[in-house]
Amino acid sequence: MKFPEPLIKGRLIRRYKRFLADVRLSDGTEVTAHCPNTGSMLGCQPPDARVWLSLSDNPARKLAYTWELVETAPAVLACVNTARPNAQAREAIEAGRISELRGYSHCRSEVRYGEEKSRIDLLLSGHESEPDAWVEVKNVTLEENGQGFFPDAVTTRGQKHLRELMAQVALGERAVLFFVVNHTGIETVRPADHIDQHYGQLLRQACDAGVEVIAYRAPLVNEDGNPSGELTLTEPVPVILEI
C-alpha cells in the first residue's frame, strides 16, 4: 500500500484549530493543509519540522493539501493521517500478511455492534475453524526512547472500545485490538499509563478476558531518511503490558 501521489515537502509553521496546519513549501510558498488527526499529536508537531503533504485534484475540496508525514527526529518519520490505519490494516489482512488473522474470506468495515452503540473498524468472517473476528484499529505515533505509547491523550472512546471488545469475547467471538505503528522510531508498544491510567487498566483487563492484542509497523522511510511512500504493514512489533 502506497500514498496515492508523490508527496510534497515543506516545513511546519503551526498546527491550529485541530484540523489545520500552515506549511512553508520548498519554494517558499505558504499553504494551509488539512490535518486529518483528532488526537493531541503529542511529539508529532515539533516547530519547523520537515513535513510531507499530499495534493488532491478534487476542485470541490476547500483545502487541496493534506498533511501526511512528519519528521519527529533526524530520519525518523511518523504518519499523522489517521484516515490511513484502517486501510493499512485491511489491506494487510486481505493480503495474508497478518499471521494472526489469516483464513478469513470476508471483511466488512464500520459495522454497528455492542450495547454502547459502537462501530467496529473491521469485522472478519468466513473462517473454516475460527469464529468471527472483531478488529479495532488504533494508530500509534507517540514515541519515547524507542517505545510507542497509546493513547496520546485521555480517551473515553478508546475505553468504550475495550469494553465492547470484552463483550464480544463473552459472546464466543474473537476480539482483536490492532495497533498500527506509523512511526519508524518505535520498537515496542505499551499502554500509556502516564497519560490515561484507566485505559491501561482496561487494556490489561481486556487481555485477561481474552481480547487479542497485536501490532504491526509500516516502513515509511528509505535508507536516506526520506519517505518511501510505503504504507504496507510488514513487521510485527512486540506489545508489552507489564508496568
Rank of each mutant, 00 (worst) to 15 (best):
F150H: 14
G146P: 07
L122R: 10
A133Y: 08
G146I: 03
D152N: 15
H127S: 10
K117S: 05
E115K: 13
F149Q: 02
R119E: 14
A133P: 05
G126A: 05
T141Y: 09
G126Q: 04
V140S: 04
S118Y: 04
D132A: 14
P151W: 08
E110D: 14
N139Y: 00
T155L: 13
V140E: 11
A133C: 14
V140C: 07
V137A: 01
I120Y: 08
D152Y: 08
L122H: 10
S118D: 11
F149P: 00
A153H: 15
E136Q: 12
G148P: 11
K117N: 13
N139H: 15
A133E: 05
G146N: 08
L124R: 07
E115M: 06
G126D: 01
L122W: 05
A153S: 13
H127I: 02
F150V: 00
G148S: 09
N139C: 14
E136Y: 12
E116S: 07
G126W: 08
V135I: 08
V137M: 04
V137I: 09
E130K: 15
D121G: 07
L142T: 00
G114V: 06
E143L: 08
D152T: 00
K117A: 06
E136P: 10
L124I: 10
E128A: 15
E110V: 01
